[in-house]
Design a protein around this nucleic acid. Structure first.
Lengths: 126, 126
DNA sequence: CCCATTGCCTTGCGGCACAAGATAGTCGGC
DNA sequence: GCCGACTATCTTGTGCCGCAAGGCAATGGG
């Protein structure tokens, strides 16, 4: 066979990530300063399948360039290359707030459409 | 100007759509046969901002090619070009089921990460 | 006959997750 | 001392897809 293997479910997660990955990072960074490797682990621990570091580092760079986060370097206590910690800026904090609202609104609408046909009455928005 | 206007919120919705737009269409079609124009309206009515038809038609074509939906033409009762109705195939129905599960799992994880840190000591800005 | 409306489809663009690989710093074994 | 292993960051090329804008087709009314 040529190359079919749609792997539908796998690809959907990738597409879903596009909308919330930046927000997740922002949210995790809000908790406390974090570095790239740690973020990948935290995402996996949070229930999202492992996100490749090739997605995380460019995204962090973009967000820093956008002024949403700032970074500083610190040596690795376990030995190894120095870590680059990120923390939220004011703008990043504001953006995170907006993003959370966006996500809630969107997830609500989408979820409603996706489950609307199984039942029709009685739903509430939180 | 080369590039400007981040329009953050606007773009986020676009990225979010990637993960669920196909599922939404599938879900709406499951309810009853629908045609392109109608789907755009249904999405808007469902709470999602208007999705451009330039996104919907190619997606429908892709899904038909993938065997998830099938189509038939019928004249427009209100006068105008004939409509192209889509209905779910077996595969489409199965895919919709998988997709719903994927969405629920993903939305759960993402939502958890996004709201995990909100409650701690002192959140006062608002 | 002409034109507005309804409805479908195509092209060019831009953004992003991903795989794979390169780079750098530190440590332990030999 | 040198080499391999581990930690951690960054870069390039690829493919996917929503979107804006524009074009085509069919119908019915002025």
């Amino acid at each position: 066979m040529t190359k079919e293997a749609p792997a539908t479910g796998d690809q959907r997660r990738t597409q879903l990530l596009r909308g919330v990955l930046d927000l997740c990072l922002l949210s995790l960074i809000e908790e406390r300063p974090r570095y790239g490797f740690e973020l990948a682990e935290a995402l996996a621990a949070g229930g999202l399948e492992p996100v490749s570091d090739g997605s995380i580092y460019p995204l962090l760079a973009r967000m820093e360039r956008a002024g949403l986060i700032s970074s500083y370097r610190a040596p690795s206590p376990t030995g190894g290359a120095p870590r680059k910690y990120y923390r939220l800026t004011d703008a990043g904090c504001a953006e995170l707030g907006r993003g959370r609202a966006d996500w809630l609104a969107f997830a609500g609408s989408a979820g409603r459409i996706l489950t609307a046909t199984t039942q029709s009455t009685g739903e509430h928005s939180t």
